[in-house]
Design a binder for these strands. Structure first.
Lengths: 223, 223, 223, 223
DNA sequence: TATGAATGAGCCTTCATTCAT
DNA sequence: GATGAATGAAGGCTCATTCAT
């Protein structure tokens, strides 16, 4: 039986790679030393390819030419590596949808469209890290999981509010706000399941597409 | 959302349970003995809660009051338990979207709506098994993975074709068929991430909702 | 990694095989039912090919189209199957070297030659069972092992006595009796390591050869 | 003969032992770290006593006060421990019979005598490792088995050639070369079955004895 | 900072054996 | 007599983690 560890999503060596498949390094906190950042990046790829539990500390550190023990110089446990990744990803996603330039948009439709577009774009641009954020929550300890849930709720609320505003003021059709906003989030999130950077969709194009589709979901049909 | 991690999955006797959380038992192949079916059902729950790699054979069999060795009376390996589940789920999903009563629908819009509704309903009804089908593919061996991929392609094609028909005959707006059909699939699939049977949405209601939303995505706006 | 259970010494199915590779069935005790005898024969082949510990009860019974449980109808344990084989083999070997027609030989040289020849012939004829007798003693329990040792001692004594007789009466050179008789036994025993029935040596020819060599070891050189 | 079964192999610390039962440590490859060498030595004893399959990785490492996992720091599998042992043993045996000082012997009889003596001495001196080399071949994978077979063939050829030379030039009686050389090898090999260092035979004495016996097998009888 | 060596805990899997049928 | 189902007890091997260096 072949090792089930084969990476479905091939990632080249980190070394010497001029351009990364995703831009996850941009997510890591400022204070972290370079090796720590590289470890997070390597971990993201491993977790995304094989899942948290199927990834060994040797996988993560080995991709950088380091020994497994090196990981413990920067992180106290494998779980905390996961937590760092998931927290960073969720934090940034929240920042993206609460960015001042988006909140400043007066027009209700354009506001919603911009929200969905930005959210989608974020997930596409960071699809590897985002995949981990969405699919590896079960690897977190209870406490860490709760902490992440809290951020998710706040993020979700942003969408619900934006939609509610348009429904309330009559701009949008009188849709079921929680359910429809949930569907809009699905458009933005589900792409981490299939998105590849080498495909024909740029993060921007995908953001535009989903923004359109979301608006179509709630547009009032002139009778 | 209840915490789906940490505490190992524990379930009361399957036998005693009058109503199951999902209806996955209906998915298992005919020939299989009862104990084998129960093992699959137990495995589905464990995999859905904790992931394939974090689930032990003891978790699966223990939930039925059996020893780990009992699993090997019915399946040659843990991986094959996963494969059986994922194959059954995918097979049935394909059957659902190729059901004669759906294919018989003449009206293009109603056809698409029925497709999305049925697909959504299926995922909601079998959300536990469907979650495994969508998120645990990395646990499969290369060969088994390929086999599943093949079924997925056929399923996806059904949606693409249905949408293309409406675009071609002018019923729908001239949307980008592959991308938009992908978005429609997202609506149906992403719910496995969050759906709970105890929530306020029945599978039927959710199917109706997604059917509506999908049609709204492609409806022609009268100028 | 390939299963290390591959049988080095291929044995055809017992069913329908007109002629057996060795004649071990002839060794089994009279009272035993046919199925029991077949189980012993199958076990001999498995043990000889793969060793006692690497042989499963399923291997033994499966070769006869039976389930593992069938073995326990005839034998109380796997170890006792081994013991039965080893005891039968050793008993018969002792019988061979204490056969009246050999003991009746007056001539000292011819007596020794006949002894070595018969012993060699026996091991060649039953080389599969004899291999188990020589190499799988470690699989026996302490008590059973002691019981076998006792038979071996008696067998060995026969050779030592025959040689001593010739040395004492001056027929043979004044060799070191225990050491040289041990060497003669080596000739007879070691063949179980390499003997194949399909080779060019018949048991009789091999017996003759070893009888000759043994005599050459002790012949007096006329000055 | 001490009971070599039942009670799992237990040895005092290898370190503390001033003199080992056999000299197998001398067989291990140069590059190996001390712990690795000790593991091989411990494994040899376990395999010799109980057989490969009846020996656990805990037996091997436990004798050194190490955990089972320690073995995997030095060897990738239990089978490879066996292979390393068997390869080292066979390699050295070949070196012994192809040593320059033996090949340099002009006299045909003395050459053969020296060959048999050296071969015997080697097996006696390393009787524990040699036992494993002769009796545990079935524990090897197919590939490793083939590799060993190749060395054995070369070793055997040395004896056949030495004997053939004497037969051809008339020094020896016109014996059947393959069969008689096989018998000579039996004298050297079979001792691993019964040799104990505490017995009254030193390796040198045994070598001398077998050298004599071998020559007696082929000496020309003056008519 | 980085690691080689070591391990405790645990996992998947096997298997001799039992027993109700 | 024969077996299918089940299991207790391992066994080989892995891995997150530690620690002396």
């Amino acid at each position: 039986m072949a090792k089930p560890r084969q990476a479905r999503f091939t990632t080249a060596d980190l070394e010497g790679l001029p351009e990364l498949d995703d831009e996850s390094p941009a997510l890591w906190p400022e204070g972290l030393p370079d090796v720590g950042r590289n470890l997070l990046t390597s971990a993201v790829r491993c977790f995304a390819s094989n899942g948290f539990h199927a990834t060994t500390t040797r996988d993560i550190s080995g991709a950088l030419g380091l020994s497994p023990a090196a990981l413990y110089v920067y992180f106290p446990s494998k779980e905390l590596v996961l937590f760092e990744i998931i927290r960073a990803g969720h934090q940034r996603a929240l920042e993206v949808v609460t960015a001042p330039d988006i909140e400043a948009i007066e027009d209700v439709s354009e506001h919603l469209r911009a929200l969905i577009a930005a959210y989608t774009e974020f997930h596409a641009r960071h699809h590897v890290a985002a995949r981990v954020c969405q699919y590896e929550l079960a690897g977190l300890t209870g406490e860490h999981y709760e902490e992440i849930l809290e951020i998710r709720h706040r993020t979700n609320a942003v969408f619900r509010d934006a939609l509610a505003r348009g429904v309330d003021d009559g701009t949008f059709a009188p849709v079921d706000v929680p359910r429809v906003s949930r569907a809009m989030l699905s458009l933005g999130i589900d792409l981490v399941r299939w998105y590849r950077r080498d495909g024909s969709d740029s993060p921007e194009q995908l953001g535009e597409l989903n923004g359109d589709l979301a608006l179509r979901m709630v547009v009032r049909h002139p009778e």
